[in-house]
Every structure is written in C-alpha cells, then in structure tokens.
Design a binder for these strands. Structure first.
Length: 213
DNA sequence: GGCCAGGCACAGC
DNA sequence: GCTGTGCATGGC
C-alpha cells in the first residue's frame, strides 16, 4: 500500500514540468481536437491517433462542422490509422451532429455540456466523457483509465469501479492542495492523469514508483 | 506472428 | 450486474 499519497503526487507532479508539452498535457487542450482525439484514442495508441488527426488536419476537416457533414465513408477513410474506423466514424460523426444541434458551436458546448449529456452519446463511456470535460472544457474532473487502475493495483489498492477510483483520486489530490498551490485544480487533475499515462508507457508495472515508496 | 494500445456497445448469462 | 466478444490498424 502507498505509504504516502502526497509523495506519489509530488513525484508525478514534478514529472509534469515539461515545457515542450501542452500545459494541460493533452495536445491542443481546450479545443475541438480533444473531442476527436477522445473518440479516436479508444483502445488505440496515441501515435496512431496522431496520424488520423493529421489526415483530418491536412484535408482541412478537423472541425465540428466538416466532420458532422462529410460522408461517413470519407471520415472512416481519414481516420483509418486509428483502428476501429467504421465504428469510430459513426460515433464521432453522430457526436459532432448532436453537439451542433444541441449547442451550436464548440464554445457553447463547453459552457453548457453536462457529464450526463456526454454519457448519453453512443461511443462515449466514462473515461471519454471525463477526458472531454477535463481536457476540452477545463472542468474539475479527474480522468480514470486503465493505467490509473493498474497503478493503484500495483501499489496495493483494490478498487473495482470507475467512480471509486475517481473519488479516491480527487479526494486524495484535494488533501494536498498546498503542493499544487500555483495551479488551478482542473489543471492539476489534467497534469496528474497525464503523468500517470506517460509514466505507465515507460514502466508498465510501475516498478520504479514502487521502489520509491 | 502474437500481443497490445490513453474503450465502448451489445449479447447472453 | 457481470463477463465475453467484436471492432481493426500498426508497431514492437
């Protein structure tokens, strides 16, 4: 079991001080790209998502309006490198259409959207919803993914449900407010989730973190 | 060639 | 409610 949650958080926080990255970790945070990325990255390496995003960018269609209105086959072709391209094309296009009809544009979407609305969209589960809320809309929500689950397991915790992990993470982070005093809470959540992902890519069993604790 | 990647929907218990 | 399966490409 983790000896000190604060120590773990500080380690992760320091790892996040990479000036080359988006300060919120997710590339192009605060923009529509996050929405597309959240769907495309499902069970897929980010490296392949980048190719799909680049295809959209190069055809000048990486925006709400064009994805909502282009032929689905065309969208599927553009996002092919990210895998599951038929289902993702359907989900992403449907989502963009619903955002347009429900909110109008990206800015209004971010102001007005709720977690419940997102969960009602096909193709968005809890992780994708929270990723959009935190990284696109800058809401105070911590994203839980496979890596977070694995990290806690490696440290001796036995969480099962998504919301249990999320609640634990947000309460724990809240208890170390002074450590992150120079950042907004939403950005702290964003950065820490990102660092868990980055760390896990290098050290899938979290052996280094376990050594430190 | 097998395995996994920044999940989710849907069927069948 | 929980578990299994399909979705599909690309890099190691």
């Amino acid at each position: 079991v983790i000896q000190s949650s604060g120590e773990l958080l500080e380690i992760l926080y320091k790892m996040g001080c990479d000036n080359d990255r988006d300060p919120w970790w997710w590339p192009q945070s605060g923009s529509f790209e996050v929405i597309a990325g959240a769907v495309l990255t499902q069970n897929t390496k980010w490296q392949n998502v980048e190719k799909a995003l680049a295809n959209l960018q190069n055809s000048d269609t990486l925006n709400l309006k064009d994805i909502a209105s282009m032929p689905r086959e065309k969208l599927a072709g553009l996002i092919k490198p990210s895998g599951f391209y038929n289902t993702k094309a359907k989900y992403l296009q449907n989502l963009c259409q619903n955002i347009q009809s429900g909110f109008g544009d990206f800015t209004s979407f971010c102001e007005g959207v709720s977690r419940e609305w997102l969960l009602g969209q096909k193709g968005l589960g809890e992780e994708s919803c929270d990723a959009i809320l935190n990284y696109a809309c800058y809401r105070e929500i911590f994203v839980v993914d496979r890596y977070t689950h694995r990290l806690l397991s490696a440290c001796g915790y036995e969480f099962e449900r998504y919301e249990d992990i999320q609640q634990w993470a947000m309460e724990t982070i809240g208890g170390y407010e002074e450590v992150f005093a120079d950042m907004e809470l939403a950005q702290v959540y964003a950065r820490l989730h990102g660092m868990i992902v980055e760390y896990a890519k290098e050290d899938k069993k979290f052996t280094k973190i376990q050594e430190w604790l």
